[in-house]
Amino acid sequence: MDPAAPDEEPGFLERRRRGAAQRYGSRLHAELMARGERATAVRRRGASAVAVALALVVHAVTVVVAACGIWLLATGWGHAWRLVGALFLLGAAWTLRPRLGRLPDDAPVLRRAAAPALFALVDEVAAVIGTRGVDAVVLDVELNASVTTYGLRGRRLLTLGVPLWEILGPQERVALLGHELGHFGNGDIRHGHLVGQALRSLTTWYYFLARTQNPTPMEALVNLVTLGPRLLIAGVLHLLHQVTLRATQRAEYLADAKAADAASAPAAVRLMDALLVTESAEGALRREANSRQVKGRGADADGLWERLAVHVRSVPEGEYERLRRVGARRGHSVDSTHPPTHLRRDVLTGHPPGDAAVRVDPVREAAVAAELGPGRARLARELLRDGRRG
């Protein structure tokens, strides 16, 4: 059933995160199946307050580092060690600074004027789930989708992985949009700017202070000197993950519920099944890219996405069942932030039945496909030319 080699042994922090994810995930799944939403919400508010407090402390440390660097720079003329210290502290503060995000320079970006049918679909889904649409859509070659914000005004950005989009049916695409847009309003504090940037800063500190493996005598001394700060940062990072973990997993379930509201529960369940075969789809794309790289022929960019969709449709039902059992067996061993797909699917099967609030007819599907056409063709050519998945 599960012949694949186990994942590479994770580090200490990741082992702790996965263990906590297993415990919280099982409890949260049981509560959601029992519809124990009130108690969950109370605990989530308390955890959010702790997470915000920790994030403010982390950002305050960054401000203090910057202030110390400025002070050393202002008072250090004629003292080389002060100038060196100032440059080091200012460099560290610059590395740890909050990032506002921006649009990518190397990917197709769609705006409302160029893709009215796509943005109308996004807006309709957003209205159903109680939020607003996005300001830009980016296309990439990942088997994934995500939402974030960019710029000073916090504009909304939806990133659509063309491979994932192409292996889904019309209603599963609506479910995908519903899930991603649901993250804007479901209390996922870890993806908020304040806490998210604090996690990034702590991870950066931990990377800088990471223990050197097989050290020389001098490196062993550095490992000893940095042991205290490294343990402190690891503790704070683990604590921040702990207090946001439940809210993050719960946010995934709530986003799934939004997907079911917009596209119907059966469509959301089919989306979960499609996520099970992304590894197989990755392999198909890798073979396409390698064929072009090795042979210089045999991979036609014009039909790449169609061939990928045919490959996924050829996966038998028995393979889906095997993958569901593998997910149940592995639990949270792969990802400590998302609940296992089989648990998400289980909750969706208990979602109240009902018709889809947003339907995509053939005319609308064709209009959206035409707007995505130039971007999907460009990404197919780039993937086969550069062999990104090789």
Rank of each mutant, 00 (worst) to 15 (best):
A5N: 02
A5R: 04
P6K: 12
E8V: 05
F12A: 14
L13G: 05
E14Q: 13
R23G: 05
Y24V: 10
G36F: 15
E37Q: 05
E37I: 03
A41W: 09
V42Y: 01
R44E: 10
R44N: 09
R45D: 12
R45L: 13
G46V: 04
A49H: 15
V50N: 06
A51I: 12
V52R: 15
L54P: 01
V61K: 07
C68Q: 12
W77T: 07
H79D: 00
R82A: 10
A86E: 10
A93I: 05
R97K: 09
L100T: 09
D106I: 00
P108R: 07
V109G: 01
A115D: 03
P116I: 00
D123V: 02
E124P: 09
I129S: 09
D135F: 10
D140I: 07
E142S: 15
T148H: 10
R153M: 04
L157Y: 10
P163Q: 02
I167M: 15
G169K: 12
Q171P: 01
R173H: 11
R173T: 07
V174W: 05
G178P: 11
H183W: 07
D188C: 11
I189E: 07
G192E: 03
V195H: 09
L199Y: 02
R200V: 02
S201L: 01
T204Y: 03
Y207T: 14
T212E: 06
Q213Y: 00
E219M: 12
L224C: 08
T226K: 04
L227Q: 15
R230S: 13
G235K: 11
V236H: 14
L239K: 05
L239Q: 08
L240E: 11
H241D: 10
R246A: 11
A251E: 00
A262W: 13
A263K: 13
A274V: 05
E279L: 10
R287S: 11
E288V: 01
N290Y: 06
S291V: 04
G296W: 09
D302S: 15
E306T: 10
L308C: 09
H311V: 04
H311N: 03
V315F: 03
E319P: 05
E321C: 04
V326I: 15
V326A: 14
H342N: 06
R344L: 02
V347K: 06
V347E: 07
P352E: 11
D361W: 08
G375F: 08
A377P: 08
L379S: 08
R381E: 13
L383P: 00
L383S: 00
L384W: 01
D386M: 11
G387V: 08
